[in-house]
C-alpha cells in the first residue's frame, strides 16, 4: 500500500490534494512526469501528473478534480489509508532551459501540474509570467504558490468574481502584444489548451501543452493514449505527455476522451447511489 500522509480539499471540495508516500518515485520524478494510481483491487488505473515531489521525505503529491467514480474513490481515502498501487514516474520530463521569457498558462487543476514546471522555468533563469484561470473565485487553486513561483501572476475568472473577467486567452493576447515571449506552456482543460495554442500560433511562439488521454499501462504497451501530433500518431504515455500545441489535433483528442462516457456515467451513478 502507498499511504496518504496529507490530504487537503480545495476549490470548495471539488479538488483534492493527496500527498502520498512513494519514496522510489519521489527520488526519480521530474516536473511534467506522471504516475498511475489504483485505489483498490477492483479499481481503474488512473494517470495523474504530479504536482509536487519531496525526495527527502519520500512523498509525491497529486491534485485532482472529482469527476467520476475513480476520483470519487480517491476522494474518500483518508490520511493513513492509501492507494493499493502507484506506478511511476512515467512520461518524459518537461524540457527546461533558459530561453528568456516564459509564459505559463494554467486552467482548472492544470494549475497544479503547471506549478512545478513554472518553478523549474524560473529556477533555470527565465523571466516567468503566469496566467491562471478558473470558472469562479471559489474554484481557483494554488494562487499563492503560483505567485511565489513566478515573476508576474495574472488571474482570470470566467464570471468575473475575481481578477480579470474573461478567459486566460485574453491575457495571453495582451502579454504577447506587449512582451517578447520565447516559450509558452499551457496546461488545463482541452478547450483551454486548444484556444491558447490557436492564439500563440498567430504570434508564432512555441507552445507546449500537457495531454492526459485515456490510458492503461502508461508504458507504451496498450496504445490507448494515442494522439495525432503533426499528422503522426504518438503515444502520450511514452512520447509525451507534453507536445507542441501547434501540432496537436485537439478535436480528435476531445472525441477520444469521450470513448467511455456512457460507462463512466453508469459507474459514477452506481457509486453515488451506494453512498447516499
Amino acid at each position: 500500500m502507498f499511504p496518504i500522509v496529507a490530504r487537503e480539499e480545495m476549490a470548495q471540495g471539488t479538488v483534492i490534494l493527496n500527498e502520498i508516500e512513494a519514496p522510489l518515485i519521489a527520488r526519480k520524478a521530474k516536473p511534467g512526469q506522471f504516475v498511475i494510481l489504483k485505489a483498490n483491487e477492483e479499481g481503474e488505473r488512473i494517470p495523474l501528473t504530479m504536482a509536487e515531489t519531496d525526495p527527502a521525505k519520500g512523498t509525491i503529491t497529486v491534485i485532482y478534480m472529482v469527476v467520476g467514480k475513480s476520483t470519487a474513490l480517491f476522494k474518500d481515502l483518508k490520511v493513513g489509508e492509501g492507494y493499493q498501487d502507484v506506478i511511476g514516474p512515467l512520461g518524459r520530463p518537461t524540457h527546461v532551459e533558459k530561453v528568456g521569457t516564459v509564459l505559463c498558462v494554467g486552467g482548472g487543476t492544470g494549475v497544479a501540474v503547471l506549478h512545478p514546471i513554472t518553478r523549474a522555468m524560473k529556477a533555470a533563469g527565465n523571466h516567468v509570467i503566469c496566467v491562471i484561470g478558473a470558472r469562479n473565485k471559489g474554484l481557483l487553486i494554488l494562487e499563492e504558490k503560483m505567485k511565489a513561483a513566478s515573476n508576474d501572476l495574472r488571474v482570470c475568472t470566467d464570471d468575473g468574481s475575481y481578477g480579470h473577467h474573461g478567459f486566460v486567452t485574453d491575457i495571453v493576447k495582451e502579454v504577447l502584444e506587449k512582451t517578447p515571449v520565447q516559450q509558452v506552456v499551457a496546461i488545463g482543460p482541452v478547450p483551454m489548451m486548444k484556444a491558447v495554442s490557436a492564439v500563440t500560433k498567430t504570434y508564432n511562439v512555441p507552445t507546449m501543452v500537457s495531454l492526459n488521454p485515456i490510458m492503461i499501462d502508461g508504458t507504451g504497451m496498450c496504445g490507448g493514449c494515442r494522439v495525432s501530433v503533426g499528422g503522426k500518431t504518438k503515444f502520450a504515455c511514452v512520447d509525451g505527455p507534453e507536445f507542441d500545441g501547434h501540432q496537436v489535433n485537439f478535436d480528435e483528442l476531445t472525441k477520444r476522451l469521450r470513448a467511455y462516457c456512457t460507462e463512466e456515467k453508469q459507474c459514477y451513478e452506481g457509486y453515488c447511489r451506494l453512498n447516499d
Binding site: 481503474e44 492503461i216 496498450c222 496504445g223 490507448g224 460507462e263 463512466e264 459507474c267
Partner: peptide, 23 residues
C-alpha cells in the same frame, strides 16, 4: 490494439464491468 483490449479484459477484469471499474 489487442494489447489494450486483452489487458482491459484480463488484467483489469473488465468483462466483469461494472463490478470492476475498468470498462
Amino acid at each position: 490494439s489487442a494489447n489494450e483490449y486483452l489487458t482491459r479484459a484480463n488484467l483489469m477484469k473488465a468483462y466483469k464491468f461494472p463490478e470492476v471499474d475498468t470498462p
